[in-house]
Simulated scan of single mutants.
Amino acid sequence: MLQKQRKLILNDQQRDAMRRAGRVNASLMDYIRPHITAGITTGRIDEMIAQWTLDNGHTAATLGYQNFPKSCCTSVNEVICHGIPGDEELKEGDIVNIDVTTIVDGWHGDQSETFLIGEVSEERKAVTQCAFDCMHLAIDALTPGCTVSKIGETIVPEAHRRGFSVVREYVGHGLGKQFHLDPSIPHFPNRQSRIDRLFPGMCFTVEPMINAGTRYARCDKADGWTVRTKDGRPSAQFEHTVMMTEDGPEILTQCNDGPRKGHQF
């Protein structure tokens, strides 16, 4: 296992390449941010993301990935993840997660944010706040060489304290020249995450999916991608690409205009 993980450890030049990919991806999120408003369709969001990516000479990682048909994921209300952009129009009171991954000179930057459309219900606001806070609490808990389980050991008690649940079927992942690498990054502690460690030079995502109700999910059999909460209650997610350094975790996808640690929705 340790030998397998050491292959993921980046040298200084590779670390800088990942930093650039993260900055580009964050710029894309800042670009689309003002357009996430009532009245826009998720398909139009995808079109704008696809055009920006092409105009800047990069590649949308999701487009064609395992036959996914679009350049981003748009997950509205009870959709946990992998929502396919289409004709759905955002309306007042919705929450929507926008997940974008950009390939920059062969390296991946990956992040997502949940946006509140106008005035939303207290439940939708609270679950969004919980997902955001859990992501940052987990990142802050990491230290060089710590076990991956530190992430789940931080997120689960906080989510449960607020009356919410943590999705287990979908997890974070290592990241680099490939979209999904070892180690798996579950947002709950399990046997493997208590073995795997995060050494300096490793890049990975922290992306907790928090449900207002049950943690259980169901995948839409019609499209094979869209994942919804089993009870139809809302779900929220935030994601950053993180690089472990000798001094601790470094967030690679922090936006200039987006929410930062401590933000209150």
Rank of each mutant, 00 (worst) to 15 (best):
K4Y: 07
Q5I: 14
R6E: 11
N11C: 02
D16A: 14
A21N: 07
A21W: 04
R23C: 12
M29L: 10
Y31W: 13
I36N: 08
A50P: 00
Q51D: 14
Q51I: 05
W52G: 08
L54W: 05
L54T: 10
G57K: 11
H58R: 09
A60T: 13
A60V: 07
T74E: 12
S75Q: 01
S75F: 02
V76Y: 00
V79D: 03
I84G: 03
D87M: 09
D87T: 12
E89F: 04
K91W: 02
D99Y: 06
V100I: 14
T101E: 12
Q111I: 10
E113Q: 13
T114H: 11
F115Y: 14
L116M: 15
L116A: 15
G118V: 08
E119T: 15
E119V: 14
A131W: 00
M135A: 11
H136W: 15
A138I: 10
D140N: 15
D140V: 10
A141K: 11
T143H: 09
V148S: 06
K150Q: 08
K150F: 01
E158Q: 12
R162I: 08
R168H: 15
Y170D: 11
Y170H: 15
G172R: 06
G176M: 01
H187R: 07
F188Y: 15
P189D: 09
N190E: 13
R191W: 10
S193I: 07
I195N: 03
L198D: 00
M209E: 10
I210F: 07
R215T: 04
C219S: 08
D220G: 06
K230S: 11
K230G: 03
H240P: 03
T241G: 15
T245D: 04
Q254Y: 07
Q254W: 07
C255V: 05
F265I: 10
